[in-house]
Design a protein around this nucleic acid. Structure first.
Lengths: 231, 231
DNA sequence: CTATTTTAGTGAACACTGTTCACTTTTCGA
DNA sequence: TCGAAAAGTGAACAGTGTTCACTAAAATAG
């Protein structure tokens, strides 16, 4: 059971990991520049001087390999947002930074981000996921990222800048949707930010602009004395 | 030049169009249920009892065929939103309906909507699109859909419910991003709407909830007498 | 009505793709 | 050192989109 390598790994597995990393690195390169369709097992194998079948000793399928690329990207995304979320700036700045950092990280690797949200689940998968508990969800990277948003909303409510009537989970979902949408719109339709007749506005500035609008949507309602019929 | 069929088409082209429609109909079926990867030229040809090469007498490539499917879906999306936008309801209801209808139509055909925004443009394509004028843009279906939003914002500003300081084009972009994001989030991550610990809320209701938040983000700022440092 | 040209449609082939599997070679532990 | 386990390979299978020389049928011209 025990070996001569109590903490270090045995040279065999170190070599193996090295090959595995080489595969992932090459795959990362190809995927980042050419996307999912540009990443072929055969070209990948050629790139690292192995036979195509060798890849299958390290990854069960192309999909499994891709899953690993996406997951590592999502962890990176989470880290980034977590970083700015932890920085002790002014609340408004921090909230805005969460959105802008999210969008910036997403658009920096468009293929990764798009691929991370590319699969349309089948009805069967949907039935499985339907039985996921809240605790299981926030254990995943996506869940953790989501938790950051929930906490942000609650903090905003505690500070009195966000409407206390909002359910934090739903508000967080709204923020995520808005950020997600802007990131994908910039990735898939980069026409829009440029076609506008106000050329003074760059893409990056619009992200902050959008983030401010999103945050404004969660602010405390405008007129307290007025009779407010809706909701 | 002139034929016996001044308004009607000649039987030859009518027959041809019939085959073309049959191809599109079969493609539509396969694509709607199995997505882009499930739509193969060969299976499609088999379905309509033609040889694979016959397809290429009607469509230059698989991509061209897909493009037509996506375009027709986008026109449908535009029609739907245009419909509710033209209905003379209360402004708030109408604005909310624009978002909810958009999201509902998108999620009703998840593969179509996801595919319509799936291509990551290459740097070359990006350079080409960068020289599109505003007029050219709003001539396209996407541009027209966008125009609806711009008009909506301007109307809201005229009614005094939206912040007059907003640039309508940018505000419209913000609305689109938020709607787009919610639609794709519901398509790709249907976990979220269900994992929330408030089971009284159904998906459809959340769309309206989100729409309200989005609209609130464009409303006139809260405190006029207060000193407002930011922006 | 015939001759010619245009069009519709096909089958075989090309160059790919992911994946499997029997097989050899190398490596490692006892 | 020997046997077992692991690493790696080549060939093959079943797909894919696409092309192209070719036939059969229809439309057109004389």
């Amino acid at each position: 059971m025990d070996s001569d390598y109590p903490l270090e790994q045995t040279p065999a597995v170190r070599r193996r990991n090295k090959v595995r990393e080489a595969i992932l690195a090459a795959a990362e390169r190809m995927f980042a520049s050419e996307g999912e369709s540009g990443l072929s097992i055969r070209r990948l194998a050629e790139e690292i001087d192995y036979s195509p079948s060798a890849i299958y000793k390290y990854f069960g399928s192309k999909e499994e390999l891709l899953e690993e690329l996406k997951d590592s990207f999502f962890e990176r995304l989470l880290d980034r947002v977590d970083g700015v979320s932890a920085a002790n700036k002014d609340f408004h700045d921090r909230a805005r930074a969460c959105v802008t950092t999210y969008v910036a990280t997403a658009t920096a690797r468009p293929h990764h981000y798009a691929a991370a949200f590319s699969s349309v689940p089948t009805p069967e998968e949907l039935a499985v996921r339907r039985h996921l508990s809240w605790d299981d969800f926030i254990a995943t990277p996506k869940g953790q990222a989501f938790k950051i948003l929930v906490d942000l909303v609650e903090e905003g409510q505690a500070l009195g800048v966000f409407d206390p009537a909002l359910e934090p989970v739903k508000a967080a979902k709204s923020i995520w949707a808005s950020s997600h949408g802007l990131a994908l719109l910039m990735i898939h339709m980069p026409i829009l930010p440029d076609v506008q007749p106000c050329p003074t506005q760059t893409d990056g500035d619009f992200v902050a602009y959008h983030a401010d609008i999103v945050m404004r949507g969660l602010a405390v309602p405008a007129e307290p004395p007025h009779k407010n019929g809706t909701r």
